[in-house]
Amino acid sequence: MKSCLRLLSRFTLISVLFSLSHAVFASQSDVLSAVKTALPQYEVESAELHEGAGLYVVTLKNGPTLHVTQDGKYFVAGDLYRIDETSIENETEKAKLAKIEAIPEAQMIVYKAKDEKAHITVFTDVDCGYCRMLHKEVPKLNEAGVTVRYLAYPRAGIGSEAYTKMVSIWCSADPKEWLTQAKLGAEIPENKCVNPVADQYKLGNEVGVRGTPSIVLSDGEFLPGYLPATELVKRLGL
């Protein structure tokens, strides 16, 4: 409860209600059509009905998450929170975490702590300066019991130079070593294989990654940007 209140006091959550139309909709496709009409500048990536809230959770590419009424008349832009007698739970972060945790570690590049107490999942780009700063602190995180799991997020998109580098790393015989070498500025031998880089990039867009590094804590909290190892350890409660 206290951590949630600290989060809410740190950020001002502004949720604005928009009228979409005066028609009554009965299906998911009608709700999506209303959103597309109201916000044509965004591409709709997904929409799922949240049974508890009775709202459609609509994910926009490079845009906010929307929570849309089933009649299609209104939506709220922002995170969805569930309140009970003792706590506040961020349902939006919970849903993002579920999608990330569904990815097998075999598809990630993982720097495992010997005595694991927690883990973080990091969307990374090999050419990102702050990603390189974070990677230098992986040994400190491992020593503190934090496993670091990397997902690929080439900021320039699929088909970019960074994307090609990350495919080569994921397809190499030793991805951990080549990821470290890439973050030190080394040339990466080109490799090709069936790989998850494009899917991980798309997932990043879906869960709201806007830059790198984007760090997801093991409790679902989303940290957009670099934090020193000591601060990350504190955030994890270690």
Rank of each mutant, 00 (worst) to 15 (best):
Y111A: 08
T86P: 02
K183V: 10
E143Y: 12
E187L: 05
Q107H: 06
I215M: 07
A182K: 00
F25C: 10
P40R: 03
P213V: 06
V197W: 11
L236N: 12
V194F: 13
L217F: 09
I103M: 06
L13M: 09
E85L: 13
I169M: 06
M1V: 06
K136H: 11
P228K: 14
E101N: 15
K99Q: 13
L236W: 12
I120F: 12
R10G: 14
V68A: 11
R155V: 12
E93Q: 12
Y74C: 08
I14E: 12
K117D: 00
T86R: 02
Y81E: 01
G78L: 11
I88K: 02
F75L: 15
A38G: 09
L5F: 11
I88L: 13
G220W: 02
E91A: 15
I83R: 05
R10D: 14
Y42G: 05
A34T: 05
S21T: 15
T12P: 00
E143P: 01
G54R: 04
N90F: 11
G72H: 12
A77H: 04
E177G: 04
Q28A: 04
L227C: 02
I120C: 07
K61N: 05
W178L: 14
L97Y: 04
R149W: 00
P40W: 01
Y111V: 05
E116C: 04
L20G: 11
Y150G: 14
V110Q: 00
A53V: 13
T147P: 02
L17S: 10
D125V: 09
E116G: 03
N205C: 03
F11W: 14
T59H: 06
D71L: 09
I100C: 05
N90K: 05
G52T: 12
Y153I: 02
A186N: 12
K112A: 10
R6E: 13
L20E: 08
V138P: 14
A182E: 02
R149A: 08
L60I: 08
